[in-house]
Deep mutational scan, measured.
Amino acid sequence: IDVRFTVNGLDVTVRVRTEEIAERVKELAKNGVDWREIQRIAEELNK
C-alpha cells in the first residue's frame, strides 16, 4: 500500500504492508512528524 502525504511542501510516498500501518503513517504525517522519521518508523513497522 502506498501512502502519500505532504510535509513542509514535500510530497512523500511511503510503501507499507498493511492498512493499519498506513493509518499510523497518516497520523504521524498529520502531527507534523519529520518525513525521515516517518520513513524510519514505517520501515520498522513493515518488518
Rank of each mutant, 00 (worst) to 15 (best):
L10W: 08
D11S: 13
A22Y: 05
F5A: 02
T13W: 11
T18V: 02
L45K: 02
V7R: 05
V7P: 01
L10H: 14
D11L: 15
L45N: 02
N31V: 08
N31P: 02
A29F: 15
N31L: 14
E19A: 13
D34A: 11
I41H: 04
R15P: 04
F5T: 03
E43I: 10
G32T: 04
L28T: 01
L45Y: 06
V16I: 02
D2H: 11
V12S: 02
W35Q: 04
R36N: 13
E20V: 09
D2P: 07
E27Y: 12
D2L: 14
E44L: 09
E23K: 13
N8Y: 05
F5V: 13
R15T: 14
N46C: 03
Q39I: 15
A22S: 05
N31T: 11
I41Q: 06
G9N: 06
T18L: 03
V16H: 00
E19G: 08
V14Y: 06
V3D: 01
L45I: 03
N8P: 03
I38A: 01
E27K: 09
T18Q: 02
A29L: 12
N46H: 03
A29Q: 06
E23H: 12
V33N: 05
E20G: 09
A42R: 01
R24V: 15
V3T: 02
D34M: 09
L28D: 01
L10Q: 13
E20M: 10
E37N: 07
D34Y: 10
A22F: 05
R36Q: 14
K30Y: 10
L28A: 04
V12R: 06
E20L: 10
N31M: 15
D11A: 13
T18E: 02
E27M: 13
L45F: 06
I21S: 03
R17K: 13
L45H: 03
G9D: 06
Q39C: 12
I41W: 06
G32Y: 06
D11Y: 11
E20Y: 13
W35M: 10
G32E: 06
N46S: 05
K30Q: 12
V16P: 00
K47R: 10
V16E: 00
T13L: 10
V3A: 02
G9H: 04
R36K: 13
N46W: 07
I41E: 05
N46R: 02
D34K: 09
I38K: 00
E27R: 08
R24T: 13
V12D: 01
R40L: 10
T6W: 09
N31C: 12
N8R: 06
E27L: 13
G32K: 07
I21K: 00
V25N: 00
R17V: 15
R40G: 05
L10C: 06
E43N: 10
R15S: 09
R15K: 09
V3K: 01
I1W: 14
V12L: 11
E20H: 08
E19H: 14
A42M: 06
Q39D: 04
D34L: 10
V25G: 00
F5D: 01
W35H: 07
N46I: 02
R24Y: 13
E37D: 10
I1S: 04
E27T: 11
R40M: 10
L45V: 02
W35T: 05
V25Y: 00
R4T: 14
D34C: 10
I41S: 03
Q39P: 01
E44H: 08
E27A: 12
V7S: 10
R15V: 10
R15E: 05
G9R: 02
E23S: 10
N46G: 06
D11H: 14
G32F: 07
I1C: 05
V3R: 01
G32C: 02
E43K: 08
G32D: 05
E19D: 09
R17S: 10
I41V: 08
G9M: 04
I38C: 02
A22H: 03
E27F: 12
D11W: 15
K47G: 11
E27H: 09
I1F: 15
E37K: 08
N8L: 07
W35I: 15
Q39R: 11
L10M: 14
V7K: 04
K47W: 12
E19W: 15
K30F: 10
E20P: 04
L45D: 03
G9A: 03
D34I: 07
R40K: 11
R17H: 10
T6D: 06
I21G: 03
I21P: 00
D11K: 10
I38L: 08
K30L: 12
F5N: 01
A42F: 04
V16L: 03
R4Q: 13
E19F: 12
V16N: 00
E23I: 12
F5S: 01
E37W: 08
K26L: 15
K47H: 14
K47Q: 14
D11F: 13
T6G: 04
D2V: 14
V33E: 05
R15D: 02
I41M: 07
R36T: 14
A22P: 00
R4L: 09
V25E: 00
R40H: 07
A22V: 04
V16Q: 00
V3I: 12
A29R: 05
V25S: 00
F5R: 01
N46P: 02
R36H: 13
K30E: 11
R24W: 07
V3F: 05
K47T: 11
R40A: 10
V14H: 01
E44D: 09
V14G: 00
A22D: 00
A42T: 06
G9Q: 04
V25K: 00
Q39L: 15
V33I: 11
V16Y: 01
E27N: 09
V3Y: 03
R4F: 12
V14I: 15
E44F: 10
R17P: 05
T13P: 01
R4P: 04
W35R: 04
I1M: 08
E19C: 08
T13Q: 07
V3E: 01
G32A: 07
R15G: 04
E19N: 11
G9W: 02
L28P: 00
V33R: 06
D11Q: 15
I38R: 00
K30I: 12
T6L: 09
A22L: 05
V25I: 15
V25D: 00
R4N: 12
A42L: 09
L28Q: 02
A29Y: 15
R40P: 01
A42E: 01
T18I: 02
E44Y: 11
F5P: 00
W35G: 05
T6Y: 07
D11V: 15
G9Y: 03
V3C: 05
A42H: 01
E43A: 11
T13H: 10
L28Y: 07
R36I: 14
V33H: 07
L10K: 14
N31D: 12
I1G: 03
T18D: 08
D34V: 07
E43V: 08
G9E: 05
Q39F: 14
T18R: 02
